[in-house]
Each structure stands twice: as structure tokens, then as C-alpha cells.
Design a protein around this nucleic acid. Sequence first.
DNA 1: CTGTTATGTGAACACTGTATACATAATTGC
DNA 2: GCAATTATGTATACAGTGTTCACATAACAG
Lengths: 205, 205
Amino acid sequence: MTSPRYHHGNLHAALLAAGLTASQARGPASLQLRELASAVGVSPSAVYRHFPDMAHLSAEVSRMAREALANRMLSAAAAVPEVTNDPGEGAIRRMQAIGRAYIEFAVSEPHLFDTAFMAAGAAPSCTDDPSAWGVLNNALDALVRAGAMPVSRRDGAAIVAWSAVHGLSGVLARGMLPPPHQPADAITTTLAAVLDALGVRQPTA
Amino acid sequence: MTSPRYHHGNLHAALLAAGLTASQARGPASLQLRELASAVGVSPSAVYRHFPDMAHLSAEVSRMAREALANRMLSAAAAVPEVTNDPGEGAIRRMQAIGRAYIEFAVSEPHLFDTAFMAAGAAPSCTDDPSAWGVLNNALDALVRAGAMPVSRRDGAAIVAWSAVHGLSGVLARGMLPPPHQPADAITTTLAAVLDALGVRQPTA
DNA sequence: CTGTTATGTGAACACTGTATACATAATTGC
DNA sequence: GCAATTATGTATACAGTGTTCACATAACAG
């Protein structure tokens, strides 16, 4: 039993956790200082012992959402079995897996996706770690290393892949896909188009 | 001279104009009812004679931003001269022009771009007119009609093109492009990749 | 055990969007 | 042309927000 002590213990983490939950449930714009404080059982002003203001708190929540996204991509890539006779095929499948994981994260958790890339998220730069951007670049390097992608295309590859996958994610997350189309089809079509644009010869399976 | 009359004349339009200006300057999240009211020289409650609440007002502003974007695309397409001997080349150049216009709108007016596609924008569906989505689909139809793009690829074409262009726009608008890369290069690379994914044979020029 | 520091509370402040009652102007019917 | 009605504005009040400041409580160091 946690007796109602005067000091919370680790308010910082508790506030972030509550913030992430709320943001996941009702969107990043719904974050409210007083609500988080009372959810954690603390007075509003206590928050200021751990965050300079609300903007910093929600920026931290945003960062956590980006971290969650990156972790989904990592575990999706890790789930792809090694292909012994063809190192290229493994790299290709892993590339597809992280792309699919990215999009499916956006579809299954649209509010978290918004949270990750919201404008108010301080500096949602591509380059902070651990980030989806880093995971993508590693996958691209692996593609080149395995000989599945020409080195000549490596330069702009990350941007092309990111743009397409991130763009589709936003479309699907916000339900902007026009009626006749199916999300699943759009995903496979886009992933195929990306690999095609990168000069990757795709497995027929 | 406009004497300070009791009745404004057309508060509705004035509020929207002020809202668009503010949103363009400082982002959609900065829209404030009281500020808009005083900017137009009217009391806060007067706003409610023309909009049910603030959400509807900013949704209208968001719609105006989408309209501005669509207009940029249209005029960019209109600026492409007709190629008499090759109807396909004209269609291709127009397609490139609207894609470039879309991205350059996002880069030159990042706050307006945010305004256009913000989550709180009521229903920023792709299908409302006049919209960038409609302009894109018309350009794609023209490509097929001119024989520059195989009909077989028409189905998912809009989504692929939209995802890539919209995604890159968001990246550039938020300054998420990693340092070594140049925006101009990213734009041409992405546009080329899109046309390639659509099965369009591009002019070498 | 005492002084210091970290971490909480409570009451206030300025600010927001919104509702209600009232004032003024434009419009309509005779 | 005048009276009633409708449209459009103002003034004031209210609940809610993030934030601040003085103070309370607990943990910790010497």
C-alpha cells in the first residue's frame, strides 16, 4: 500500500507517464497541467518543481512518443529472421518491416503519432536519438552493405523513404484516405514504390 | 474614410482575414478569439454572432489555408506552356509543377501549411473542394490521357504521390532535413522518385 | 539534534473562451 | 414616414487555464 505521503517519490516520471497516457487517449492538444497534477494526486504548483513550464512537459511527452515509435520499428526489424543464403533478402525484408511498423504505429495509435510529431514538440528533429530516423538510416546502410541497393542511390534515400512513409502515415492516421481505397493496399503500394525508387530489386513473394 | 460605426459591416470576412494573417505569422495554435476581435476593433462577444465558437472559426481559417495551397498549385500548373508536338511532356511538366508548388508553399509558408493540415481543423479531408487532392487527381488523369502514364498505375497513384510530396513538405517546413542535405536537392529527388514510381518516363532536360 | 535543501500545498493573478442581458442600428410592414 | 422586428454590436460575469509566490513539510548533512 502506498500511504498518502506528503512527498510523492518520483513525481517527474509519474507526470510523464500520465501525460503520455492522456496524450495517447485524447491527443497532444488535450494535455492539461492541472489535470495531470490531479491525476497523479498532487497540487498544480508541484509540477513546477520538476518542469519549468507546461511546454517543456509536453515536449518531453512528445519525445517519449518518438521513442515508442522507434522501439516498434526496432522490434519489427528484429523479428525478421536471418536469411542464410541471401543476405540481401534479409535486409530488404527488414527495411519493409520498419516501414510497415512506422505506418501501423500511426494507424493504431494516431494520437501518439500526432504527439510524436506535433509542432509544439520543441525540436522534433530527425537527428535525436533514439529516433526513427536513425533506425531508417541503419536499415538503408544494411541494404547497401548487403548489395541489395546501389550505393549511388544512398544519398537521398533516407529523405525519399521518410517522406513517403511518414506522409502516408499522416494520411492514414487522420482518416484522409478517400473511400474507395483500402489502407492495406495503400501501405503495400507505397512500400513497394519506395523500394523501387531506391533501386531495390524486390522479392516476388 | 471608415468612421467608427457601431456595426462593422462584414465582421465575418474580417475575422477570417485577421485569423489567416495571424495564423500565417505565428502558427495555428496562436489563434485567439479576443485578439482577433480587438484586431478587428470589436468586442469578444461580437464574434459569436458569426461563429458558433472558436473551433469553427479556426476550422474556417484552416480551410482557407488549404484553398490558398490549391490555388498555388493551380497557377503553377497554368504557368506551364503547352507543348504542341508532345502532349505527354506538357502533362508531365504540369505534374512536376504542382508537386513543386505544394512543397514550396510548405517551405515558404510553414505556418500556413500547418494551418492547412492541423489536427484541430475540423475535417481536413482530402476530398473537400477546391483542394490540393482534386488538383492532383486532375493532373494524374491528364497524365493518363496524354499517354504519359500507364493506366494500370492510376489506382494508387494519388496516394503515392500525395504521401511523398506531403511528407517531404512536412519535413522541410519543420526544418527536419538533416544538415548535409539541401532542400532543393531533396525536392528534385523526391519529385523524380514519384514520377518514377508512377511509371512515368521523364524528360531528360 | 539542528540547519539546509528538496519537494510539496494554497491562495492569488492574468488570461482564456463562453454565456447572458442589454444597446444600437438596419430592415420590414403598414 | 413611423413602429415593430430582426440583425448585430457592447458590457459584464463566470468557469477554467497556466503561472507565481509565500509558506509547509519532509529528507538529509554536519
